[in-house]
Design a binder for these strands. Structure first.
Length: 221
DNA sequence: GACCAGGCACATC
DNA sequence: GATGTGCATGGT
């Protein structure tokens, strides 16, 4: 039932947009950094910050762990909330060095839900950031929920507006085949659709999901 | 100038 | 547990 609806949505989006090739990043570390920097921030601003980090040659766990927080903040300035995010990156690195000797290698062997919980223990890594890291840096099956994801399924009245993050994650995970490739592409397609057609004030004209039932008058969505 | 962007922690009730 | 607020740059 709901499985078919979610599968239909996926097909409509994929047929329109094609593969999104997420996550945009060359290494696991770069994906983790990007996941933290993109919190409530446009990706183009994150790209500027990552370029600065590459030019300064500190886009590695060891180098970023050693740089002063104030210096790091200055480099990531274009990403916004730069003081907060510099602290969050440092929190992650301090934890990584204390618990895992500064290496991401062991993460591959950690069971998905446990890895997610461990990441959530780092101050500054919340649900979406943790799921993004688990799925996109380590290829483990968790469904990433973000503001676009929520807005789209709520506008299409597939779920109640009050649904919280964990419920939304379960909604997708339990109604789709357990496939890392699918979860990867699905979330990326929802973000693509959200950017182009499902922004707060945007109407649905031209949206691949336009012909599906929807209600854009839902308060706040 | 207003609005928005691939959130999160924290205070307060 | 729910709700409100600060954090900040850059594009439209």
């Amino acid at each position: 039932m709901m499985q078919e609806t979610l599968t239909e949505i996926y097909e409509l989006l994929f047929n329109r947009f094609g593969p999104q090739n997420w996550w945009p990043g060359e290494t696991q570390f770069e994906i983790i950094v990007g996941a933290i920097l993109t919190q409530n921030t446009n990706w183009s601003n994150v790209e500027k910050a990552i370029t600065n980090l590459k030019n300064a040659d500190i886009l590695s766990a060891k180098a970023m762990h050693n740089i002063e927080t104030a210096k790091l903040a200055e480099l990531i300035r274009p990403a916004g909330y730069y003081n907060i995010k510099a602290g969050r990156l440092k929190n992650f690195l301090n934890w990584l060095f204390e618990e895992y000797d500064g290496s991401l290698a062991e993460f591959e062997n950690i069971e998905t839900e446990r890895l997610r919980r461990e990441l959530l223990s780092v101050k500054g890594i919340g649900r979406e950031t943790a799921d993004s890291i688990v799925l996109y840096a380590f290829g483990k099956e968790t469904f990433v929920v973000d503001s676009y994801t929520a807005r789209i399924v709520i506008r299409h009245e597939l779920i109640e507006p009050e649904t919280d993050y964990e419920q939304l994650r379960y909604f997708f995970q339990s109604n789709l085949p357990q496939s890392e490739e699918l979860f990867n592409e699905y979330h990326a397609l929802l973000v693509r659709t959200g950017k182009e057609f499902c922004r707060p004030k945007a109407r649905c004209a031209g949206c691949p999901l336009e012909r599906l039932p929807h209600n854009i008058e839902i308060e706040h969505y």
